[in-house]
Every structure is written in C-alpha cells, then in structure tokens.
Amino acid sequence: MGSAAGLGDVRRSVLIQRPLVGRAIPARQLLSSDAWEDVAGARLSRARGDARRHTTRVRILRILFPVLGVAVLAVMAGLIVLFNVLTSLGIGNVMLTTEGLVMDRPELSGHDGDRSYKVSAERAIQRITDPRIIDLETITAEIVMGEGERAAITANRGTYNNGAETLLLKDGIKLDWSGDYDAEFSSVEVDLKTGEVRTSDPLVVRSTQGDISAGKFTYDQDNGVVRFTDGIKMTLRPGATRMGAVDTEN
C-alpha cells in the first residue's frame, strides 16, 4: 500500500489487516454483502456508546485528577510537617491511635553550650489536640550540666512539653546526681532549658553521709541554689566518710 492512499483505502486496509487471530475474514465477503450494514450498524452503536462513556469518563477525570493531585499534595505537606516535628523527637516507628500518635522508643535531645539533655522513653503518645505535648511512659532522662555535674532521672510516667521544653515526671521517680546523691520524688518538673528542677511534693535526698527529707524542693542550676522548703529533716553521719575521701582528723 503506497503512502498516498486516500482515507477510504486506509480504512479498508485497516479492516482487512485487522489481526483476527485464528479466523481470517476474506476481504471480498466484508465489502459486498448486506451483512456489512448490520455489522457496521452494531459496531457503530457500540462505538457511539463507547464514545459517550468515554466523554463522561473524561469529564469526571478532568475534575478528579486535579482534586486528587491537590489532595495528595496536602497529605504530603502534612506528613512533612508532622515528620519534622517528630524527627526532632527521633521517632522509632509511629502508629496513630485514638489517644494520639504513639511512638515507640522515642528519643528527645537538645543542648546549649555545655549543657545537654537526652530523654528516651518506652512509648510516647503525642496528643492530637496539641502536638507539642507528648505523654511518655517509662522514661530515662540524662541532663549534663557541664564540669562533671550530671543528673540521671528515671520515671514511670511523664509529660514532655516541646514548646516550653519542660519535662514533668510523675510516679516512681529516681534521680541520681553525679553519683553523689540519689533522690526520690513523687513528682518533679525539669526545665530542660535552664536545668531548673522543682517539685512541690515531699522528697528524700540520700547520700553516703546524710539524708534530707523536705516538703518542697527547687534547684536553680544557673546560680547554683538548692532550696528545700516546707519543713526539712536532715541527718548527717559525720563518721561516714565519702567513698575514698579520707576524713583527716587533726
């Protein structure tokens, strides 16, 4: 077939060459018999149906695709925002539950100058209502204050406020301070920025040579002031020397 064939020739040749697998239609029979009219008619109506369905489909898709695109974009943006909030939290795997976004073994950390803190937990639940508030379970926190001053805190439950960078711990809190003291609180609030620790519930601080129990406690790290208030009892064991430090008696 030359390339200059008219439209008719092209349509006829297309029909003849249609690859009917296993059933060849002789070109002569297609062209001459009245079967042509009903075959063509049926095909015509089917084609018209196809066309109509096609146009409606196109019309739907013309609306659907942009909307779909925008939706996907929104979801992607949302996830990115969510994840960069979460990445600062160093999240293991994340599940969405009714309580909020549950994260497994998250780690939060931050530092400024020589002071740094690292808080890790078994589980963290980020509240849907306020993503800055994260409830934590079985928490271990480590605060380095510089020059050998370190506090290691463990607690069963707590709340980390990402905005104010405070950590409120409750229930079964143990605090070990540079290996010299250890303290038991029923609740304690740690300001991770300034390193201030405070509680308004009774506490006990123990060390080899003495214990203090008090109603309230605040430790202001910046100007190095520890205040026990609301009634204190202190026992000093002068005889008990510190591990290693010899008590030179003159």
Binding site: V225, V226, T229, D230, M234, T235, L236
Partner: peptide, 11 residues
C-alpha cells in the same frame, strides 16, 4: 549522727 530540723534549707 547530727539531726537538723528546720523550716527551710538553702544551699
């Protein structure tokens, strides 16, 4: 041992 009781202690 020395026992100390008070309202407040500031270190």
């Amino acid at each position: 041992p020395i026992q100390i009781e008070a309202q407040e202690l500031q270190v």
